[in-house]
Design a protein around this nucleic acid. Structure first.
Length: 415
RNA sequence: GCGAUCGUAGCUCAGUUGGUUAGAGCGCCGGUUUGUGGUACCGGAGGUCGGGGGUUCGAGACCCCUCGAUCGCCCCA
């Protein structure tokens, strides 16, 4: 590579070959499942006013305080490359009057941007698939959304990943629990890890899933959300879990599961690889493959009427890592011209073949004697060789393709 | 933001304790061979060793800075 070739931006990826196939496979499967559940497709802008995210996710969250790609545009507005989908969708719901469609089920996918240190399964430009139900406050909405996520993973052929489920309660439950946690951890503050001491002020719920050995002894006795749940919140969670059971979605209760963004209420969940599974191995430290929850307060936060909503997002790259190798599809026909006199004929043949809906590759360059070898190497169903003024069909492995091929060429009155 | 490991041809890698014109396999290009076939052989193009600075008579090999990659921490999908 030349010295003056600029390199790619850190944390971005150029995806090619089997990886690109796996990526496409994830997206295609999501699109199929999305339609099964009747989620409507939406396309969203890649950037928004900075406040859309700052107000939604919470100013103190890591995402907002240190991971956003924010910049001033030429008009002086502060804009931000979307670090997630939900906030933008909530904004669109309000600014486009999508309330009229409520309850609204939508799905989308695309790139997101977060200024983080790249590592396995974590990139600065990464991609997610996303599903949201806005304007539905019933637990059935949570169930439908989770059933969809569960089916998606199954259809992708991903195994060894289970749904970890928790409730954060309603706003009041959550606040009471949070206060109790701060109280509890403050008592043992100087024995906690530095990270957790800091979390104590910023994000005490996070201490609960700390990996630091020094924090472990204090976790079992920490206050549990269940003790702070209002009757409504408890009933809601029970409705969700029994709904999941009825829908045949396996789940485990994860009392310590919290979500990083401020807007979550009630149901919170993550699909995580089972300890020691192949999936856990494939993902490394970035274990959450799909996560989300209920965000009943968000729309109101953005200036709308109180509107309940639930949603999830999943990392396409992470799912692709679990899906494994996906090979590119075989080409139907390779047309090889070994005799330059027949290049035009060959060209006509490839066009006709492609026009008939078959994929075709055309080889008519390089050493004449090596062209056929190249064709063989590509690995096609049929090779159509043109040499010495004649046409020869070889590798007739699939009758269907051959018949189609014959009719394509007939239409061209070549054969 | 913190830590560890790493960075040699398009790809995967070798390069002895620093010492003459930096190597291999694969791939690519060309030739011969083969001619219902992804064979074999010959030849060729292509790196100045991520970038910059330093130590040295001399550095791909040592030191510093920087960029990037990988894997952790943190955070999250």
């Amino acid at each position: 590579m030349s010295k003056n070739t600029p390199n790619a931006i850190r944390g971005t990826q150029d995806i090619f070959g089997p990886d690109a196939e796996a990526f496409a496979y994830v997206v295609e499967t999501f699109e199929r499942v999305r339609k099964l559940y009747r989620f409507r497709r939406i396309e969203m802008p890649v950037f928004e006013k900075t406040e859309v995210f700052a107000r939604s996710l919470g100013e103190t969250t890591d995402v907002v305080s240190k991971e956003m790609y924010s910049f001033e545009d030429r008009g002086g507005d502060s804009l931000t490359l979307r670090p997630e989908f939900t906030a933008g969708i909530a904004r669109a719901f309000l600014t486009n009057g999508w309330q009229q469609h409520a309850p609204l089920k939508v799905g989308t996918h695309g790139p997101l941007f977060r200024y983080e240190r790249p590592q396995k399964g974590r990139y600065r430009q990464f991609h997610q698939i996303d599903a949201e139900i806005i304007g539905a406050g019933e637990p059935q909405a949570d169930v439908e959304l989770l059933a969809m996520a569960d089916q998606l993973l199954k259809e992708l052929g991903i195994e060894g990943v289970t749904l970890h489920l928790n409730t954060l309660g309603d706003g009041e439950s959550r606040e009471a629990w949070r206060a109790a946690l701060i109280d509890y951890f403050r008592g043992v503050k100087d024995q906690l890890s530095e990270d957790s001491q800091e979390r104590l002020e910023k994000n005490p719920l996070r201490i609960l899933d700390s990996k630091d050995r020094r924090d472990q002894p204090f976790l079992p006795d920490a206050p549990k959300i269940d003790a702070f749940l209002s009757d409504e919140a408890r009933a809601f969670f029970e409705a969700v879990t029994s709904g999941l059971d009825a829908a045949g979605v396996k789940w485990v209760r994860a009392e310590n599961l919290v979500r990083g963004l401020d807007y979550y209420r009630h149901t919170a969940f993550e699909f995580i690889p089972d300890e020691g599974s192949a999936a856990a191995d494939a993902l490394g430290a970035q274990s959450t493959v799909l996560g989300g929850g209920r965000y009943d307060g968000l729309i109101e936060n953005l200036g709308g009427a109180p509107t309940p909503a639930v949603g999830w997002a999943a990392g396409i790259e992470r799912l692709a890592m679990l899906v494994g190798e996906k090979s590119e599809p075989r080409v139907d026909v390779v047309v090889v011209v070994e005799d330059d006199e027949m290049i035009a004929t060959g060209q006509a043949a490839v066009s006709a073949i492609r026009g008939h809906g078959m994929s075709a590759e055309f080889i008519a360059s390089g050493g004449k004697k090596k062209r056929f070898d190249k064709a063989v190497k590509i690995g096609s169903h049929v090779i159509l060789a043109m040499s010495d003024g004649e046409r020869r069909l070889r590798y007739q492995t699939e009758g269907g393709v051959k018949d189609q091929l014959v009719s394509a060429l007939k239409a061209l009155s070549l054969d």
